[in-house]
Design a binder for these strands. Structure first.
Lengths: 208, 208
DNA sequence: TCAGACATGTAAGTCGTTACATGATTCA
DNA sequence: TGAATCATGTAACGACTTACATGTCTGA
C-alpha cells in the first residue's frame, strides 16, 4: 500500500522529550535533525492532529494571559508505547537522493570539463556546510568538557526540556549526531578531491 | 507548488545513452544508481509516457519476429536539449532520510545500551554493503587497468550502449560513482565505531 | 515442465513541498 | 512604525511506494 509514516514517529519522539507546539517541532527538526531529516508545516500540523485522533497525543490550548494563541501537544502513555515499539522495530536503510551523483553519472557522455565544473560547485557547498558544522562541534565539545552550556546552547537545551541530570547525556547525543554529519561531509569532500584528480588526468590526456 | 520532476531527467539521461524500455531503465537504475537514487515501475512507465507527451522522447514497438512485446523509447533532439539544460542548472543539495540517525537522536532519553544495540545492527548492514561494493570495485579496477571488460561487466556496457571509443571513460564514471558509495559507507562505519566507543564509556561510568 | 527472468501497466494510498492565507507580538 | 519572529493552518500538486494484474519466453 504505502510508506511508513515516519513523520509521525519523528514528531512523537520529540514530544517524548517535552510537550510542544507545531512551531517548536519545526524548529527542533531544523536545528537538530537537518542534515538527515526534514519536516515542513504542511506535514507537521496535519500529523499532530492525526496523533491526537489516534490517541497518541493530546492537544491543549496554551492561550492564557495575553499571550499568542498556541497549541501544545503532549504525548500520551499510548504514544510512548508506540514510540518504543518503533525504536525497537527494524530500521530502514538510509534513503538518499543525491542529485549531484545522479548528474555526474548521467553526464558521462559529456566532456570531462563539464563534470569537473559540476563537482567543484558541489565541493564549495560542502566546504561551507563543513565550516558551520565545525563551529557547532566546537561549541558542543566545550560544553561537554566544561560541563557548562553556553547561552547559544542553553536555548536548545530548554527547548528539548532536558533536566540537569540527563543534560550531559543529551549533549553527547547532539554531539554524536553532529559527528555523523561531519563524517558524511568529509566523505563527500574526499570524493570530490578524488574525482577531480581522476578527471584532471583525463583532461591532460585528451587535451595535450 | 510542488517538487522538481527529477525522475524525468534521470530517465532522460539514461535514454541519452541509448534507446531503451521501461524495464531496461529499472535495471540500469538498480545496478548503477542504487546507492544514491531509486525508481520503481510505478514511476517509470507513467514518466516515460509523459516524456513522449512532452516531445522529449518517442515510443516505438519492438515487437517483431516472434519476440516479446516491448516498447523502446528514444530521446528526441528536444529531449537532449532539456537534459543539457538540467545538467547545467543549479544542483540541489543531497536529500537524506536516515532512520537510524533519527532513532539515535530521539532515543537520547533511553538507556545507552539500547542505542548501542541500534547502532550495532546498522553497523552489520553497512559492513555487508561495503563487502559488495568492494567486490564491484575490484571488478571495475581490473577492467580499467587491463583495458578489457569481464563478462560480468560486458552486459552492463552493452546495456548502456557504450561504443568502444568512450568505453574507458564510461568505466571510469562507474568506478568513481562506486567510489562515492564506498566513501559514504566508510564514513558511516567510522561513525558507528566512534559512537559505540563513546556510549561504551557512558555505560562503564553509570554501571560500575 | 517449471522457475526465473522478461515485460508492461494500474490503483490506492501516503508522503512531501510550496505557495497561499492570516494574524499577533516583540523589539529596535 | 515596521521588520522579524511567533504561530497556525489549507490547497494544490506532484512524488513515491506497494500491491495487484497479466502474460511471455528461455533455459536448466
Amino acid at each position: 500500500m504505502a510508506a511508513k509514516k515516519k513523520t509521525q514517529f519523528a514528531i512523537l519522539g520529540l514530544l517524548s522529550w517535552k510537550p510542544m507546539s507545531g512551531y517548536d517541532v519545526k524548529k527542533l527538526v531544523d536545528v537538530g535533525l537537518s542534515h538527515f531529516w526534514n519536516e515542513n508545516y504542511g506535514q507537521i500540523y496535519p500529523t499532530l492532529d492525526r496523533l491526537v485522533a489516534d490517541g497518541l497525543a493530546t492537544k491543549k490550548s496554551d492561550h492564557a494571559s495575553g499571550k499568542r494563541r498556541r497549541f501544545v501537544y503532549t504525548i500520551t502513555r499510548k504514544g510512548k508505547k508506540a514510540f518504543r515499539t518503533w525504536i525497537e522495530a527494524p530500521t530502514d536503510a538510509p534513503i538518499v537522493r543525491n542529485e549531484l551523483q545522479l548528474k555526474f553519472f548521467l553526464s558521462s557522455g559529456l566532456p570531462a570539463i563539464d563534470s569537473v565544473r559540476l563537482i567543484k560547485q558541489h565541493q564549495g557547498a560542502q566546504r561551507a556546510a563543513l565550516a558551520e558544522y565545525r563551529h557547532s562541534e566546537a561549541v558542543l565539545r566545550e560544553a561537554l568538557q566544561n560541563d557548562a552550556v553556553s547561552d547559544e546552547l542553553d536555548e536548545l537545551m530548554t527547548m528539548t526540556g532536558t533536566d540537569s541530570q540527563s543534560r550531559k547525556k543529551q549533549l553527547n547525543t547532539f554531539y554524536l549526531t553532529l559527528r555523523h554529519g561531519i563524517h558524511i561531509i568529509e566523505a563527500r569532500l574526499a570524493w570530490c578531491e578524488e574525482a577531480i584528480t581522476s578527471l584532471g588526468a583525463d583532461l591532460a590526456n585528451t587535451e595535450t
